[in-house]
């Protein structure tokens, strides 16, 4: 098969660059026909191995009773049909109630984080739309939280949120005197607020980065014409900036949503292995119920439901935004 020889040709052809009419042309034609498939093959194989096949197996696993007793020989695990889903979606039972609670936490977390990150991003972007001294520096500086490896940034926050030797309590209690008692930030009901603040701190720079790029592609003439017509800054923002950012905002919000809804790192690194229920977002919840209780079947069922939910929301979102864009 000529097709198997692909890695070699570039080198060979370099030595004999001008032989368009040699007898190998027929073989080369066949090779050219297969070439696209050949070049795309590694990507296909890797996607199959790491994403597609495991996903299919994961869906299969969700129909099995996979616990610490059956995990060794998981192909022989008993088939239980929709049992895992029944347990998961029985919101009267423990597993279902916990999942529902975690889902609620995740939705609240996602809505707050995405809305705040986007709003801060656009606020900073608009403030920095026109040149001023120090703009280049600030632009790079604001990106630091996003550029830091997630664990390094979150560990720093973990330190700041420590009850006795953290910065947050030092400022709030010792310096401002807002509380009589030092609050706990990493356990109990405050943990949700902590998680949200840390996530926004890390995510808004990304929104800012993308929005800045979008703002720069808006021609200055538009603003000049508008201000000659006497349009105020607020009016210009509504009539020029927002409509021109629409295509970018559409993708940006979807990406922010997917990242935040699937976010595992922030909660896991901030709270360690014992994430408080108030801050147990869905991926942490699934992780804990799979690897702590070793109930992989149940974990898979929850993952599948999560994927279905994300697919549904994304599809609805794309449908909605594209229809509005046309209308």
């Amino acid at each position: 098969m000529a097709a198997t020889a692909t890695p070699a040709p570039p080198a060979r052809r370099r030595r004999t660059p001008r032989r368009p009419s040699d007898p190998a042309v027929a073989g080369r034609g066949r090779l050219l026909r297969w070439l696209p498939y050949l070049l795309v093959l590694p990507a296909v194989l890797m996607e199959l191995l790491i994403h597609i096949v495991p996903m299919l197996i994961g869906i299969g696993m969700s129909f099995l009773r996979l616990t610490q007793f059956t995990i060794r020989n998981w192909t022989a695990a008993p088939f239980t049909g929709l049992d895992n889903y029944r347990v998961t979606l029985d919101f009267g039972g423990t597993a279902g109630a916990e999942l529902l609670r975690s889902f609620g936490v995740t939705v609240a977390f996602t809505v707050i984080v995405v809305a705040a990150s986007w709003a801060i991003g656009i606020f900073a972007g608009v403030l920095m739309q026109r040149p001023f001294r120090g703009r280049g520096f600030l632009r790079a500086f604001f990106l630091f939280p996003y550029a830091l490896p997630a664990y390094a940034a979150v560990i720093t926050w973990n330190f700041m949120l420590q009850r006795d030797n953290g910065l947050v309590n030092h400022v709030l209690v010792d310096q401002l005197g807002l509380f009589d008692e030092r609050p706990f930030w990493l356990i109990g009901s405050n943990s949700f607020a902590s998680l949200t603040v840390v996530a926004i701190w890390r995510l808004w720079p990304f929104a800012f980065l993308v929005i800045m790029a979008g703002l720069q592609s808006i021609p200055d003439d538009l603003y000049e014409a508008a201000s000659i017509d006497g349009a105020s800054i607020g009016r210009q923002f509504r009539a020029i900036t927002m409509p021109m950012l629409r295509p970018i905002n559409m993708v940006l919000v979807l990406v922010l949503f997917l990242w935040t809804f699937n976010d595992f790192n922030t909660a896991y690194v901030l709270f360690g292995n014992s994430v408080p229920a108030e801050a147990a977002v869905i991926s942490v919840h699934i992780y804990q119920s799979s690897f702590v209780t070793w109930n992989f079947g149940l974990g898979s069922a929850m993952s599948v439901l999560l994927l279905l939910f994300l697919l549904l929301v994304s599809a609805a979102y794309l449908l909605f935004t594209s229809r509005r864009g046309r209308g």
Binding site: E47, I50, H51, I52, V53, P54, M55, I57, G58, M61, I71, W74, L258, N262, F264, I282, S283, I286, Y287, S290, F296, G299, S300, S303, V304, L306, L307, L310, L311, S314
Partner: peptide, 17 residues
């Protein structure tokens, strides 16, 4: 679309594979 898969979904199967 693999971008939107929750990592947790294929973590368990990949581990088993």
């Amino acid at each position: 679309s693999t971008q939107m898969f929750p990592g947790i979904l294929f973590l368990l199967p990949l581990f088993l594979i």
